[in-house]
Amino acid sequence: MNTLSNSLTEPQNESIASNGLSQGDVSDFFALLKPRVMFLVVFTALVGMVVSHPNVNPVLAFVSLLMIAIGGGASGCLNMWWDADIDAVMTRTRKRPIPAGKIQPNEALAFGLTLSAGSVLILGLASNWLAAGLLAFTIFFYVVIYSMWLKRSTPQNIVIGGAAGALPPIVAQAAVTGSVAWDSVILFAIIFMWTPPHFWALALVKSGDYERAGIPMMPNVAGPNSTRFQILAYTVLLAPLGLAPVFFGFGGLAYAIISVVGGLGMLALAIQVYRLREGEPAMRVAQQLFGFSILYLFLLFATLLAEHGFGFFHPVLG
């Protein structure tokens, strides 16, 4: 954050400072919300709602989902405000609105804080204050615990920080039922366990980027081989955990099939990542694991949505 002005190019600094007026377009402000992360938040939160079979007014459920999405976007915005200096030196992130000079850091801060407060307040009014408190905690955890503290200080950053990304189903269930039950906790655990293999596969490919930015990702600190072993270890835990909804009675036959096939796919790729350690094939298989992990999580949650939202549920046990 402190070195942002040093990281920006001369024209970017000039455009920010020349008149003190906002230079950002609507699309730049929307980009601050990390739309792709917001989609994941909405999707997992929706599944958290649907598996709860709530008896709640659809308008209130819709507004609750919208506020969870905006809260997720606000935390992404505050993350971009804080990390603008490292975003500027990473190829993956240097075109984001702040390092690109389209939005001033203070604008992003005000935008993020306003959306955070607004989303928590309206979620509290539309549903209940347990859900609002959980959303506030999620934003706090992502911005303060993950972005400000863990990300630059420990290679376990995305392991612990992954809790923030895993919380939306719990917030959503609390919003529509007023309490937290086992099913949303299991969804939390699946996303939490999925995060390390997902991000470390990317970190293996982009380790140069992270090193330049000075972020202690696992491949830069413990080395690529240790990271490959840890990816495999987390995947060995993730694959059976993916089946837990079946044993807790809210994952049906379709879910059981998808989670077994998907879990085996994740395991096969994690073993390949562990075995292939040199050159282009090693990078390619890490990239494949990163891509497949997104598909895996999407399929697990989409199947639950289909089973509970569209009547495709056929119980496996009992």
Binding site: N57, V59, L60, V63, L66, I122, L125, A126
Partner: peptide, 10 residues
């Protein structure tokens, strides 16, 4: 509109 709808729904 959202606040109106929430008020009506609640």
């Amino acid at each position: 509109i959202l606040l109106f709808a929430v008020t009506m729904a609640k």
